[in-house]
């Protein structure tokens, strides 16, 4: 099973890229745990998670080929 991950703003900077594919990840919580292990600086960043474009606020199961996007808040004007 494969999951696509898109990163924006500070998250893309912390992950050093904008688009990733990961396998063997079953829920959004698993994904976040995995990403925090891989990219330590994510721990101090804020972001919202979207599964197939829908913003979610709690853990969600993931299916093959789902796209998870990580959107940080911006304040610049």
């Amino acid at each position: 099973m494969q999951i696509n991950v898109l990163a924006f703003g500070q998250i893309a900077e912390a992950m050093n890229g904008e688009s990733f594919t990961f396998s063997n990840i079953n829920t959004t919580n698993d994904l976040i745990d995995y990403l925090m292990q891989q990219y330590a600086s994510l721990k101090t960043l804020d972001y919202k998670i979207a599964v197939n474009k829908q913003i979610i606020h709690s853990n969600m199961p993931l299916n093959n080929h789902d796209t998870v996007a990580l959107l940080p808040p911006f304040s610049g004007g």
Partner: peptide
């Protein structure tokens, strides 16, 4: 609207 570096919302 909000912006940072090269990205906007």
């Amino acid at each position: 609207g909000a912006i940072l570096r090269f990205e906007g919302q």
